[in-house]
Design a protein around this nucleic acid. Structure first.
Length: 202
DNA sequence: GCGCGCTATTCCCACATGGC
DNA sequence: GCCATGTGGGAATAGCGCGC
């Protein structure tokens, strides 16, 4: 009690020629895409067909491009800086903790020397004359004893060694710096990220 | 000494977010 | 809506080093 083949040699030739994978061949022959390939492959071999473009070898065929909905160019700002810094530490196997409550530092990272407080700064501010990035190492602080001005009693104050152990700086160009507090201890407001800090590019 | 270029500093503005 | 807080950006100015 034998079974009758339901496709012709000509159909196999056409299907193999137009298909990009064996599933396409099965579909062209009126079978399901998961239909066992054994008998069709044998037929193709008997017919001397070129099947090199089918199967796994075809997996490198580029997928046609499709439009997506994220066309904006990358421009790191304060929202993404923390993620950039966290990934930097995590990629190197150092766990990261983010304070639940607002704190002077942005995250705590495990280090070879215990836990370190890290303040993350991002910058897209380029010095017009030098073309270098500038980043301000200040935080806003409400000073109850200060005189009122246009910003009330808010003043820009530098960080202290008791508040931060490291500054992680990410520029809009994608360059990142890991600056120990001691390196910028004497900075009263901002620094220009030039060759002076090249040793701290990470 | 002077002019120039560069950097640091200061002040102010705009914007966003969260709490009250 | 107002206030406190945090952020980035622009403009002005001061200070410093260097060459002439």
């Amino acid at each position: 009690m034998g079974s009758q083949r339901t496709y012709t040699d000509e159909q196999v030739r056409d299907a193999v020629k137009s298909a990009s994978c064996w599933a396409d061949v099965m579909e062209a022959l009126g079978k399901s895409r998961t239909y066992p390939q054994t008998f069709v492959k044998r037929t193709a071999t008997e017919l001397g067909l070129d099947v090199s473009h089918l199967g796994r070898q075809n997996s490198s065929v580029p997928v046609p491009p499709q439009a997506h909905h994220f066309s904006r160019p990358p421009a790191p700002d304060g929202r993404s800086g923390l993620s950039i810094a966290a990934r930097w530490f995590l990629d190197r196997g150092y766990n990261v903790s983010v304070p639940l409550e607002p704190a002077v530092y942005d995250l705590i990272a495990e280090s070879d020397d215990g836990l370190k407080r890290v303040q993350v700064k991002t910058t897209a501010a380029v010095e017009r004359r030098s073309g270098r990035y500038r980043v301000r190492l200040l935080r806003s602080s409400y000073q109850a004893a200060a005189e009122l001005n246009s910003r009330g009693r808010v003043r820009q104050v530098p960080y202290t060694n008791d508040e931060v152990d490291y500054f992680f700086v990410a520029t809009a160009a994608g360059t990142t710096y890991l600056l120990p507090f001691a390196v910028v201890r004497n900075v009263r407001s901002s620094i220009v990220l030039d060759e002076k800090y090249a040793a701290f590019v990470v």
